[in-house]
Design a protein around this nucleic acid. Structure first.
Lengths: 249, 249
DNA sequence: CGTTATTTGTGCGTATGTATT
DNA sequence: AAATACATACGCACAAATAAC
């Protein structure tokens, strides 16, 4: 490692992170060129190779594309909010460029179905409803049901209890540090649904419009479900991408 | 470029391709270590940096994982440490309990968008439209666009050329045995869409009903796209499930 | 039309750090 | 403690694509 590195974070990761954030915050409009390798090397006081290493990651993530002789460009996203959610980290990183706005504050309620999906003994869950926005655009409506212990762990987060409050957090990001055991995995189920009145109002679409519904159950390392999130996305602004591989038995 | 390079193919790509093939052919069983960087550098007569470049690609693809001090290992395919989820077999297994009915027989046509998504030089693709049923219930409408070579490989399947024909095959199942290199992976994009007239008729739902739209591009082991399938599912009869894991090995 | 400058791509050498055995 | 193996970082040289002249 370089002698200049005091923080423990690799130089190329710093460069990649800052560029990623800049792209997500639309600091590089579609079609405009990013700084060249040489420019970034000077700016960050690293070698050109280190900048290349950062770009290599961003290309793999699909954040940018590069053309020899021309430059590096932010990958066009035809209006869609395009993020790869292949891992839990990706979901936690959501807070990098989105905000949540509380529509219905966190409160205790009886919900037999959610309680059973969280494998609770009682029928009591804690529920919060919010909307997630990206630069002012609402693209996701989320209802989160929490295990009582998880809800208790969020006691010190006043925003969640207040209607209209805005935060740049993610629920699992908050839970991950507050629970005794961290979040280890999530089970995700994806289907389509028509927008009901509440959803249509929150997302600014028509009643009956098709929405992408994504249910996620988050489990801690001891496989205890702690959170059930029911998300509804506007399809024009969001699509879910995965790679499938062969199982060669 | 290195003076040894006569072929025009980058040295690191050759190394990556051969390793990828070896892994897909199970030449490195789960848990056994791949050759070290130094060994591969000697074997291929390239520098250690070039081997690293190849491994970097394989890591990004999820083919291998690396542990400092221990070595490089083929990523297990049974889901345990898998970063990417779902499997091609699941899709091939469709034919076990479903049937397809040809709505529009396989024929040559010009489709610029599909051709570009298949990364073709020309604008000509071969297209077939069918409906998939499960015990008489239609649950999926599929439009398949094929690489010309893939379409040629299906010449001996008369059902595809005949409207109304019924078969219990899957297109990739057919392609897998007929193409020189097998199907290795698929890229999948999921979103929601409203049913158009054609879709509604085929699936027996109302125009405007929400459908789950799943686009899949199938690639052979040499990463050549051969098939683009656009599926529309009835959400009541289909939902897509995946498990997400934490990225730390 | 070729020439030149710019920019990314490939390849290799070296040094040092960190994790594992 | 030593050897092994991967990770990070920097340096250089040249190739290939692009754009401007």
């Amino acid at each position: 490692m370089n002698s200049k590195d005091q923080s423990g974070e690799a130089a190329y990761k710093v460069v990649a992170r800052e560029l990623r954030q800049g792209i997500l915050q639309r600091r590089y409009a579609d079609g405009t060129r990013l700084p060249t390798e040489a420019e970034l090397a000077t700016e960050y006081q690293v070698s050109r190779q280190t900048v290349r290493r950062a770009f290599h990651d961003l290309v793999a993530e699909g954040m940018v594309y590069r053309v020899p002789g021309r430059g590096t460009f932010a990958a066009p996203r035809d209006g869609q909010y395009l993020r790869q959610f292949g891992s839990i980290e990706d979901l936690m990183g959501l807070s990098l460029d989105t905000q949540l706005e509380v529509l219905r504050p966190l409160r205790r309620q009886v919900d037999i179905e959610s309680a059973s999906r969280l494998r609770l003994d009682s029928d009591v869950v804690h529920t919060v409803v919010f909307r997630r926005t990206h630069f002012g655009d609402s693209f996701c409506h989320t209802t989160v049901h929490l295990h009582p212990a998880a809800a208790a762990a969020l006691d010190d987060v006043p925003e969640l209890g207040q209607e209209g409050a805005v935060s740049d957090a993610t629920i699992i990001g908050l839970l991950d540090t507050r629970l005794p055991s961290p979040i280890a995995e999530a089970e995700q189920s994806i289907t389509a649904a028509a927008a009901e009145r509440t959803l249509a109002d929150a997302l600014g679409c028509q009643v009956g419009d098709p929405l992408l519904r994504v249910d996620r159950t988050y489990l801690t390392t001891d496989l205890q479900p702690v959170e059930l999130a029911i998300n509804h996305f506007l399809p024009e602004q969001y699509s879910y991408r995965v790679k499938l591989r062969r199982n060669t038995h």
